[in-house]
């Protein structure tokens, strides 16, 4: 069989992943809601496991009794830490709601409506985030108004 390399060049090669420029490849490809969900699920997941380690460390003064523990907790109930805690809840919310979305996609035919589920998870997440803010800062909010 004769091969005509000239005519092969007229066909456009399908674009494949460029391993050497993986950073720009990852940044440049068109991202739909599913890609964003995947990226954010990873970032929030890494943050949450890092927080779990930190959480065990920060509760370790429980072994030293009441004074040590309450001293440690005083630092965590300052307004700055409470805002950080609130932002942590945003990470928990995204990972939980998107996790539920993944389970629905995997097990309940959710692939047909995964984009709607993604939007829904953002709406539910923002509502719960604001509600948590109101609960956490209710003392401060009462002082403001």
């Amino acid at each position: 069989m004769e091969t005509d390399t000239g005519s092969q060049n007229t066909h456009r090669k399908p674009k494949t992943f460029d391993q050497k420029n993986w950073i720009s490849e990852n940044l440049n490809y068109k991202k739909d809601s599913g890609s964003w969900a995947w990226i954010l699920h990873r970032i929030t997941g890494i943050a949450l496991i890092a927080y779990l380690f930190l959480h065990i460390y920060s509760l370790s003064p429980l072994t030293e009794g009441e004074v040590a523990f309450n001293n440690k907790m005083e630092a965590f109930t300052t307004p700055v830490f409470m805002v950080i805690e609130w932002l942590l809840f945003a990470f928990v919310l995204f990972h939980s709601l998107n996790g539920i979305r993944i389970v629905i996609v995997d097990w309940a035919d959710g692939a047909k409506y995964h984009k709607q589920l993604y939007r829904l998870s953002w709406i539910v997440g923002i509502i719960l985030f604001l509600a948590m803010g109101a609960i956490m800062f209710s003392h401060e909010l009462k002082n403001l108004f």
Binding site: G65, M73, V92
Partner: peptide
Amino acid sequence: GLALVVFMIGHYILMHYQPESGHTYE
């Protein structure tokens, strides 16, 4: 993952519904 969602709901209610419940030794 699903089990953790259930645990997490309980954890958040316990820790933040009343500020004292999560943050004192008593």
